[in-house]
Design a protein around this nucleic acid. Structure first.
Lengths: 147, 147
DNA sequence: GGATAAAATGAGAATGATTAGCATTAAAAA
DNA sequence: TTTTTAATGCTAATCATTCTCATTTTATCC
C-alpha cells in the first residue's frame, strides 16, 4: 500500500504566516507545525515526532528536527532550551517565559513582562541584548500539594 | 614512570567548605575544583577536563563530569545550562545571572538582583519557585564594535 | 601503623539528542 | 509539462554525558 502525503494537506492546512520567500511550504512542514499546535504542551522534538508518526508514519525523524529548528530560526515558533535536557518548542510566539515543575516536569507559561529587567542589564553591563531567556524551576500548584 | 596523585594535594590544597559528610575529599575533586577556579571563564566540563589533563593526565573524563555535577548538586559550585549546548560551571556561587555573546561566545556575569522578578512570578502563577535562571544573549561591548 | 569497608576512580561502552551526508522526491517557477 | 533545486527520509556520525565495573583509595577502626 503505497501512499503519498498530498491528501494530508487537506487535513492539516495550517496557515503558516511567516516569511516563506525561497522556502517551500511542504506537507511535512505543515503537519509538524500542526502537531506542535495540537500538542500544546511545549513539546520536545521527540514528542512531536511521536505525534506526527500517527498522522504520517513515513515522516522521518530528521525532518521533524530540521523543521522545528528552522521554524524557530525563522521566528515562526519559539524554542525553549534549559528545561529538561532536550530542546522544546512553543507555537506561541509572543514574548513570554517558562516554569518547569521539578516533579511532573510539565512546562507552564509565565506571561509577566520583564522588559525592565532587560533594560537594567543593558545599562549596567554594556551588553547589546538581543534576547532574554528566563526559566523558573520549582513545584507547580498540583505537585506542591501532592509531594 | 608510574605516579600517584598524592603529591598534587600539596599543590591544589583547595579549601572545599561545603558539606562533606559521608563524602570523600579526593585529590581529583580538589584538582577539578581548583581548575574551575583557575580557568574562571564559566568553563564547560570539556574545558575543565582539558585543563586538568595538563596537571594530572591520569584523571578520567568521567571523573571530571561526575565531580562537576556532584559539586553543583551539593551547592559548592553553580551549573549554567542553556548557554552553548553543553553544561557550564561557575565557582562563583552567589546568586547572579549570565550574558552570552553571540559572536565570541564568551560568558559574562550579570550582578543585578532580580529577586522581585521571582516574587512576581510566584504571586501570579502559584508556582513554588526554587530557582530562577536568567540568560541574556546578544553582543558584548567588544564584539558590538568589531562586527 | 596496618586491616577494613565503602566511596570514588578510570577506561571504555552505552545512551540520548541532534546533525550530517546523500540519493531520491516533490514544490514552485518557467 | 518540464525544469530547478529545496526538502525529504534513510542511515551513519557526532557530541555531550552517563553507565558499568573492576580496581584503587580514602576514612575509620583496631
Amino acid at each position: 500500500m503505497k501512499r503519498g502525503t498530498a491528501w494530508l494537506s487537506r487535513v492539516f492546512l495550517t496557515a503558516i504566516s511567516a516569511n516563506m520567500e525561497g522556502k517551500r511550504n511542504t506537507v511535512q512542514r505543515q503537519i509538524i507545525y500542526g502537531a506542535l499546535k495540537e500538542l500544546d504542551i511545549h513539546a520536545s522534538a521527540e514528542q512531536v515526532f511521536e505525534y506526527v508518526k500517527n498522522i504520517a508514519p513515513s515522516i522521518g525523524k530528521a525532518t521533524v528536527y530540521r523543521n522545528l529548528r528552522r521554524m524557530a530560526e525563522e521566528g515562526e515558533i519559539m524554542s525553549i532550551g534549559n528545561l529538561t535536557g532536550s530542546m522544546h518548542y512553543d507555537h506561541n510566539c509572543h514574548t513570554h517565559y517558562h516554569c518547569v515543575c521539578d516533579n511532573c516536569m510539565k512546562i507552564f507559561d509565565v506571561e509577566e513582562d520583564f522588559s525592565e529587567v532587560m533594560g537594567k542589564a543593558y545599562e549596567t553591563e554594556g551588553f547589546d541584548i538581543k534576547e532574554c531567556a528566563i526559566t523558573f524551576k520549582g513545584l507547580c500548584w498540583q505537585c506542591r500539594d501532592a509531594v
